[in-house]
């Protein structure tokens, strides 16, 4: 797979602006889309894939860390290990209540489920705010590593091995945060849809 930074013409660094990636992508995608005279399906797909990689902090950092393998060797970062049982718990709670709600066909059975539904939504909300605060520490770390990366590149031409390792670890944390956020938000929307 070609270098996503190169494909999009964006400088290699940990911190990137989503809008800037989107903007660079649209400019090139408009020319490469197969409907255009200058179009090329293969190049278009590659470009889309590159933009997706750069937009996702976890995938972007892994790219910078120079590999597809996970750096932490499969073990959870400590904050993730702390959050995981809480996330799994509220997800299970939400699923079970949503399943009951889906199976209920009469007004009485549905009314009975209203209180537990609200409880599940509130629990979900509180875990989401925990996740939010974890994400903000991850973003601080991202800013810090970005500065280190830029400084080392200016001084020595290449980033140090310790920065590379730190990028890999941060990438793992972003993977967990991203996946859990998606799951929690999907359940939240489903709960909101049933609460009306």
């Amino acid at each position: 797979m070609s270098d996503p930074f190169l494909l999009l013409g964006i400088a290699r660094r940990p911190l990137l602006d989503r809008e800037a990636i989107g903007s660079a992508y649209r400019k090139l995608a408009g020319q490469l889309h197969p409907d255009q005279a200058s179009g090329d399906t293969l190049k278009f797909r590659e470009l889309s894939e590159a933009a997706d990689t750069l937009k996702d902090p976890s995938r972007r950092l892994r790219e910078l860390a120079g590999g597809s393998a996970s750096s932490s060797g499969g073990s959870l970062p400590p904050e993730a290990a702390d959050l995981f049982p809480k996330v799994a718990g509220v997800l299970q709670q939400a699923d079970s209540i949503l399943e009951k709600q889906g199976a209920a066909t009469n007004a009485l059975a549905k009314a009975l489920l209203l209180t537990p539904l609200k409880k599940a939504a509130e629990d979900l909300e509180s875990i989401l705010s925990l996740l939010e605060s974890w994400k903000s520490t991850l973003n601080q770390e991202l800013h810090r590593l970005d500065q280190e990366w830029t400084a080392e590149r200016t001084a020595e031409g290449t980033p140090s091995p310790s920065t590379i390792t730190a990028l890999g670890l941060l990438s793992d944390s972003f993977t967990y945060a991203g996946r859990w956020e998606l799951q929690l938000r999907n359940r939240k929307l489903a709960l909101e849809a049933t609460l009306g």
């Binding site: 009469n106 007004a107 009485l108 549905k110 009314a111 009975l112 209203l114 209180t115 609200k118």
Partner: peptide, 17 residues
């Protein structure tokens, strides 16, 4: 039974809200 429990459902909803 549906008819007789109508107010029951309303009470439950009010309580939850």
């Amino acid at each position: 039974l549906d008819n007789a429990t109508q107010t029951l459902a309303t009470r439950l909803i009010e309580r939850a809200m």
